[in-house]
Design a protein around this nucleic acid. Structure first.
Lengths: 174, 174
DNA sequence: CTGACTGTACCGTCCGGTCGGTACAGTAAA
DNA sequence: TTTACTGTACCGACCGGACGGTACAGTCAG
């Protein structure tokens, strides 16, 4: 779909050159389209950013879903950890898109979908984990890891990440 | 010092109205100063943002320092947790400043000090904790908590935060 | 008098958004 | 088959406003 290609272009511009470089002209240029062509699909810049936010949230939701195995205790927290490591260790630096997009969505209206997603991801029912507090810690650590890796991708090597993942999953058992 | 007052004004504008509202005119206005007056102290907008970033990092560094008690095993990780909860449970929503400022610093040059701070905060010597991996998890959870609270301040109540803090500190013992 | 500091008028650029127009594919009446 | 018409996709010139930054005259404490 053409809109997806335009969103891809917008993401590229965003994480390669930062928020202030995200102009309609730059996105159109990157997508090989005129500004008019871009505006035909996204009537305003806000609509464009909103669509980026929505897409990136949906992608992560789907990723979590793909790791869900039944509804045994801790299933969600495990899936959340798995999904996070998928994104963080994926070859295409997929996580970079996130920080770039969230930074672009500082206007309250645009940030709201992100806030809502955060509530869904971290506001879990205490009954779904054996040790709800430990599960909370694990999920928060995954969140924090994401944040840290976004800022300093080279800080942890593959070995450390692997060990970290094992420890997080272990904390969810019993 | 006058510069601090100007930085205060810039922060206010930033977290009350978002990144795009951070203009020289708005900051000057908020500080009760003319644009010329503002530019006398900060020659460019970039210098202003850079100073905001530097100050906020320095503040958190100082906060960590204030919680450091000697160099017993885990001293730093404990201090990091304490400092994080100080900021998150402080009455003046101090953490709001952070997310606002980091969002304003997406240009690589401006983000670099933040990246460097992240390396310092999370790239610790494995020898300084009894269980380095557990300490890593704890610090990352603190980082993640910050992120989550920034997006959804109402998600955790005081009781939950207290329990979480106790659990994080407990994970650092033995 | 001096120099640190302030206020204001102004400039050039950039950016979001508008708008009139083009190309083209489909369709259907005559 | 021709013709007229419609909808979709896209183009690019242009506008108005905002914004960063400059120039410069003025102020006032020491």
């Amino acid at each position: 779909m053409k809109k997806d290609a335009l969103l891809d272009a917008a993401e590229s511009v965003l994480f390669e050159q930062g928020t202030q470089a995200l102009t309609l002209a730059a996105v159109a240029d990157r997508a090989g389209v005129s500004k008019g062509g871009l505006l035909y699909h996204f009537a305003t810049k806000e609509a464009l950013v909103k669509a980026m936010v929505a897409r990136v949230i949906e992608e992560f939701d789907d990723l979590i879903d793909s790791h869900l195995d039944g509804d045994s205790p801790g299933a969600y927290s495990r899936a959340y950890v798995e999904a996070t490591f998928d994104v963080l260790t994926g070859e295409d630096r997929a996580y970079r898109r996130w920080s770039a997009i969230t930074a672009a969505a500082t206007v309250p209206e645009l940030a709201e979908p992100l806030n809502e997603a955060m509530r869904r991801w971290h506001g879990r029912d205490p009954g779904e984990d054996r040790d709800p507090l430990a599960a909370m810690v694990v999920r928060l650590a995954a969140e924090g890891l994401w944040e840290v890796v976004s800022h300093t991708p080279e800080l942890y090597d593959g070995e450390q990440l692997g060990a970290l993942k094992q420890r997080l999953l272990a904390l969810l058992q019993r």
